[in-house]
């Protein structure tokens, strides 16, 4: 880690430190609403990092990350409700189960040479199967939903991930910061270089002695594990779970937007993307309401237009351009 820090250009270090300090201090001035928006920013930065690891670094398109999110959420919630096992422990059950799901999809895809968009279809299919399964599984409330207790005793038990927005804010901040550090470290590791090779040209990577199956699988295991942790957070933050919401393809799509807008395959892209998109979404809600345009779908239309404009202006993502403007040139891509 210290070598990584030393490798980062000075302006990059200053920016990272300022950003972290701003997030740490934000609750001093932010009201409840702003905190809830910042929680979403951090949540999307975190899952964006997880997804970007698989797509941006290892080049494997997953449109079914809701699967790992949902598994993480349901495993931790079920352990808490049915067995009284708290989320800090439950997360260690959620991770291997989600990773196993990821490993199975990866094995199916890469063992049988299902590549590119076909691999993406496979990931969608598994998220959908699982949604249908949970819709009919009474143990977790089926389609009627699965609820975690609110208020009363659960209200202030940080040890069971119950509490006010500030608790969730700092947990999300820790997750996003930890994920960014992890990804930055992996990017400079031997494994990180192998991912880039496999992403750029799998055949050429093999000729350099890289076991492409193993490299992709490593990315899948880390990515699905990280996403499962976000699922645990999701379950205890929202405290209600519906298969139609958690496993929905919309869930998978929303978590890939921040890294795409911010810059695929970059360490800061998911953070920058989340910092742009979440406030943009909130602002659009406020604006359409104020203008009396609150017909269903209005926000989605403007949101879509805004995404198109950003992608049109910055096809490689906002971060590579922003890094250039700020004079931060990292050694790698």
């Amino acid at each position: 880690m210290s070598a990584l820090w030393a490798d980062t250009p000075l302006r990059g270090r200053v920016l990272a430190a300022v950003l972290l300090a701003a997030f740490l201090a934000a609750p001093l001035i932010a009201d409840r609403y702003l905190i809830s928006v910042l929680i979403l920013v951090l949540y999307f930065a975190y899952v964006g990092q997880a997804w970007n690891l698989l797509m941006g670094f290892a080049g494997q398109l997953s449109l079914g990350h809701a699967l790992y999110l949902g598994i993480g959420a349901y495993v931790a919630a079920a352990l808490w409700i049915h067995f009284g096992v708290g989320p800090w422990l439950g997360v260690f059950a959620a991770i291997p189960i989600a990773a196993l799901g990821g490993a199975f999809i990866g094995w199916l895809g890469w063992r049988f040479s299902i590549e590119g968009v076909y691999f993406a279809l496979l990931t969608i299919a598994f998220a959908e199967f699982t949604r249908i399964g949970f819709d009919h599984w009474d143990f977790t409330g089926a389609s009627a939903g699965f609820f975690l207790p609110i208020g009363g005793e659960a209200a202030a038990q940080w040890w069971n991930l119950g509490g006010g927005p500030l608790l969730f804010y700092y947990v999300a901040l820790a997750l996003a910061t930890g994920a960014t550090g992890l990804i930055a470290g992996l990017r400079r590791s031997a494994l990180g270089y192998r991912w880039l090779a496999v992403r750029e040209d799998a055949e050429a990577a093999r000729a350099l002695g890289i076991n492409i199956f193993r490299a992709r699988m490593a990315a899948m295991l880390i990515s699905s594990s990280m996403t499962a942790v976000a699922g645990v957070f999701y379950a205890f933050y929202y405290r209600n779970l519906f298969p139609a919401q958690v496993f929905d393809i919309g869930r998978s799509i929303e978590l890939i937007l921040a890294p795409i807008i911010g810059g695929l395959g970059t360490v800061f892209g998911p953070i920058v993307g989340a910092l742009i998109l979440t406030p943009l979404g909130e602002a659009l809600i406020a604006a359409t309401q104020r203008l009396g345009l609150d017909a269903p779908g209005t926000k989605a239309v403007f949101y879509g237009l805004a995404l198109m404009v950003i992608i049109w202006l910055r096809p490689n993502g906002v971060w590579p351009w922003l890094a250039g403007v700020l004079g931060i040139r990292s050694k790698g891509p």
Binding site: A190, D201, E203, L208, I210
Partner: peptide
Amino acid sequence: VRPFPALSVEDNVVIGALLHA
């Protein structure tokens, strides 16, 4: 020829060197 297009000359060669480093 198929060098890794988006990667720098240095990164391309580092990936080769990683095999036995």
